[in-house]
Amino acid sequence: MHIVVPVKLVPDLVEELVIDASGCALDPDTLRLQLNEFDGHAIEQAILLKERGGGQVTVIAPDLEGVDDVLYTAAAKGADRLIKLCDHFGQAVNNHAMARAVAEVIKPLQPDLVLTGVQSHSDLDGSIGPLLAGYLAMPYVGYIAGVTLSDGRATVRKEYPGGLVAELEVTLPAVLGIQAADQPPRYVAFSRIRQAMKSATIEEQTVAALDTSGGPAVARMYKPEVAARATMLDGKPDEVADQLVALFRELGVL
């Protein structure tokens, strides 16, 4: 069983987001990138499947700031092979371009399963999973929390709003969009990541010029205008608590 997990690095939303001088993109100099949260679940799910049934896990990431840390962390968790996609990866790369590039890298690997995070907060042209499935001519199912493998098939739990779950069977090879791994992504100590830095190798693969067709152009990017912002309560914890108790009374909940 060969499981491939292509991951995305996305802006850390805890940081202030700055729009650049062109007014139609985020300023790359002020962004701090991090692993897309759902991709962390995809990596975890891949490693859980390997631990249960054996196999190999390959993690693929574009060459952006912080990529080595992301890849070595995956190795420390149990990934076997690390591939870094080099050249052409600026901020403007959309998911269509990324999916085309990743598909070309994945094809010769002949994976049984490709796991992606179900979405990221920067997917202006759709999440990467269904696009990748299209370019690889594999079936895709997304919003998955729960995967088991047997006899060349994956049994997956697809989540619908309100808590309803559909159990679907997918013939492999397939691409799955992971909403949540069977268990939360594991923590690895920094010492183990440092160990991985020494023992694991990051393979660099150069990709051809990126084709961004299939995504929209952005004419303007801006912070949302807010109709009515919350009335902010200031003071020490005790004082704010008093104000809240008064509010609760007003609302009739106390």
Binding site: A99, G129, G134, Y140, V141, G214
Partner: peptide, 18 residues
């Protein structure tokens, strides 16, 4: 979301999400 993504590739039509 998955229909739109799959169709974007299959039909070659651009997709705008979110």
């Amino acid at each position: 979301a998955e229909l739109a993504g799959g169709l974007s590739v299959q039909l070659g039509w651009p997709l705008v999400s979110y």
